[in-house]
Design a protein around this nucleic acid. Sequence first.
DNA 1: CACCTAACGTAATCATTCT
DNA 2: AGAATGATTACGTTAGGTG
Length: 175
Amino acid sequence: MAQDSPSDKTMVTKCRRSRTSFTEDQLKILVQAFSQNPYPGYTAKQRLAVEINTEESRIQIWFQNRRARHGFLERPKKNLDSSKDHTSPKEKIQDGRDRRCRTSYSSSQLQTLKNAFTENPYPGIDSREQLAEEIGVPESRVQIWFQNRRSRLRIQRKRGLEEASDQRQNQGQDL
DNA sequence: CACCTAACGTAATCATTCT
DNA sequence: AGAATGATTACGTTAGGTG
């Protein structure tokens, strides 16, 4: 019920990615990794992806789903060791959670994405893959781009309405 | 059909880049 | 410092496969 738009009129692109079924061996490795760390960083996810021969985005989804269903019992949050020894400057500053490097889009890539977005803000897997191929970026990045774009458009709209009602209150002074 | 779970959506937030 | 925007998370929903 949270998502309503794609079922309204532009329903033509209904393709989801075909459901991947992990083999027992793959699952074993995933479960094992999860028990060791339910919040793998990017490099860890990448390594797992190679190890079980799947895409990193599948690993990410799997961990998301797993955390949601099995409520592990961990509070990693801001893992900061209490050793504030600034006298050890040659330590690896890798404490910060390792994330995927922020991808930066060229203006032509952005133009393509924006065009596609106005055409259909909810592209199915086929469209996303086609777009990804076209601009030379992984499909998972295209998916994230569309998610962020939709979110920010919604926020913008909401704010627009709020400002409109604000203006109504400030009106009626001059005029 | 019921159950499990991959795929995918939103909302909030973290983090990086740029002005 | 703050605006833009990519990445990650929690949580909820949708849909495919199986007993």
